[in-house]
């Protein structure tokens, strides 16, 4: 049986403390791209009790996603936004979810992201990562942006790191391992980078300034 909203909130508060849980429950986080990074970031943030997630992706769940992304075999063919919303609702039934089954472009970015406190960049292609950083700091400069770059292959887990580039821009990854360098993405290493990004989000919400 699913616990009541009050039980749920009380349990989270016991874990995280009242002050932090209040901040987490009041936060809105947007996730741009729901692949290996985005789907894993979303699961961490849902579990920690973030109030609202804005999920953005234009793609459908494919068999080639299942080795690293938080989807199920039976969800192949569903939109990633629908599939992830379904999975997150099972994990955290009181999470508020806003879904956008669209491609992020320079034209729709402000409309999609203006309600977010923190934006996670979780795209595949470097051009899109760069475009998002550019648009956020040009048009939404009061937001925090947490980006991921460099998590492909079988390199050491310890090379994945979190780096603060400005007060509002945090970069996670090893910054080197490119998907085109040979071996593709391996679940555990992508999850490491996603965990760095999710953890950076939580630390920003908690008011940490040092990274």
């Amino acid at each position: 049986m699913i616990p009541t909203r009050e039980e749920w909130q009380r349990t989270l508060t016991e874990r995280h403390g009242e002050e932090l849980q209040k901040k987490l429950s009041g936060a809105t986080v947007a996730i741009c791209g729901l692949g290996g990074l985005g789907s894993n970031i979303a699961v961490s943030l849902a579990r920690v009790g973030i109030g609202k997630l804005i999920l953005i992706d234009f793609d459908m769940v494919d068999i080639t996603n299942l080795h690293r992304q938080q989807y199920k075999a039976e969800q192949i063919g569903m939109s990633k936004t629908d599939a992830l919303a379904q999975n997150l609702s099972e994990i955290a039934p009181y999470l508020e979810i806003e879904q956008h089954n669209v491609k992020v472009t320079t034209d729709n970015i402000v409309g999609l992201l203006h309600n977010a406190d923190i934006i996670c960049e979780a795209f595949d292609r470097p051009e899109e990562k760069s475009m998002l950083v550019d648009c956020v700091f040009e048009m939404l400069s009061d937001k925090y942006l947490v980006s991921g770059s460099g998590m492909a292959g079988l390199g050491s887990a310890n090379l994945i790191k979190t780096r603060k580039l400005t007060s509002h821009f945090i970069l996670c990854g090893d910054e080197i391992s490119d998907i085109s360098d040979g071996m593709g993405l391996v679940c555990s290493r992508v999850m490491l980078c996603a965990a760095h990004q999710a953890h950076a989000v939580i630390r920003i919400i908690a008011g940490e300034k040092d990274f």
Binding site: G33, G36, D124, R125, K129, S130, S149, A152, G173, I176
Partner: peptide, 10 residues
């Protein structure tokens, strides 16, 4: 300046 060059994968 810090110049970051993004790499693919996500």
């Amino acid at each position: 300046l810090e110049i970051v060059s993004f790499v693919g994968g996500g």
